[in-house]
């Protein structure tokens, strides 16, 4: 069950422990996956989110923040935290396209409904064997195309084709979900 931000905040005001649990339940994974697009491994993303939550609780941000601003606040803070970390490590090369990419991912993450996880995973598993393998290797294990090609015994070009084929199939299958999301966001 997805809690609304208003529910999470009013829960915080009554009982910080429960509010904290609800915050984790609702936002931890989406935020880690969002930040995860900026780092090569999830560990660093988890650190950034941990810091943002710590600040949120320690400074009692939950007492005054408006429900409408909660999601944006959390994603912006995680983004800033991640950028600082990248900058400190001298790793930042941020181009206009990256900004657009992050905006898209932020929107996607905010509206993500955990209830759909199993359906998506099942849809990936229904893809032809090699396609599913390539999808998992690239998206989940973040393997390089070259490595995926070697592992699955196909050419580099075939990897690209299988990946785009898999993504296309998913997009078609979930276009109704996305429309639905769009509907919810608008109304």
């Amino acid at each position: 069950m997805k809690r609304t931000d208003g529910e999470i905040l009013s829960c915080f005001r009554d009982d910080r422990d429960r509010g904290c649990s609800m915050l984790f339940e609702r936002y931890y994974k989406p935020l880690v996956l969002f930040a995860g697009t900026l780092f090569p491994d999830t560990g660093e993303a988890e650190d950034v989110v941990q810091d943002v939550f710590y600040h949120f609780l320690e400074k009692k941000i939950y007492l005054w923040i408006e429900a409408e601003a909660l999601a944006t606040y959390l994603f912006r803070s995680v983004k800033n935290g991640a950028m600082n970390k990248l900058r400190d490590g001298g790793r930042v090369t941020f181009l206009p396209l990256d900004a657009l990419k992050l905006d898209v991912i932020e929107e996607e993450s905010i509206s993500f409904d955990p209830g759909i996880v199993n359906e998506i995973v099942a849809a990936i598993d229904r893809l032809p064997g090699k396609t599913a393998f390539v999808m998992r290797a690239v998206l989940l294990d973040r393997k390089k195309y070259k490595e995926v090609a070697e592992l699955s015994g196909v050419s580099l070009n075939t990897v690209k084709t299988l990946l785009s084929h898999g993504m296309r199939t998913l997009r078609e299958q979930f276009s109704s979900y996305r429309l639905l999301l769009f509907f919810f966001v608008r109304h």
Partner: peptide
Amino acid sequence: RGVTGAYHLARTALLWDRINATRAERLL
């Protein structure tokens, strides 16, 4: 947007169960 959104959606679904929110909550 379409391709990026779907890519993230698929990635999110695949990684969802690998992230341990309970442990993170305890650490916090």
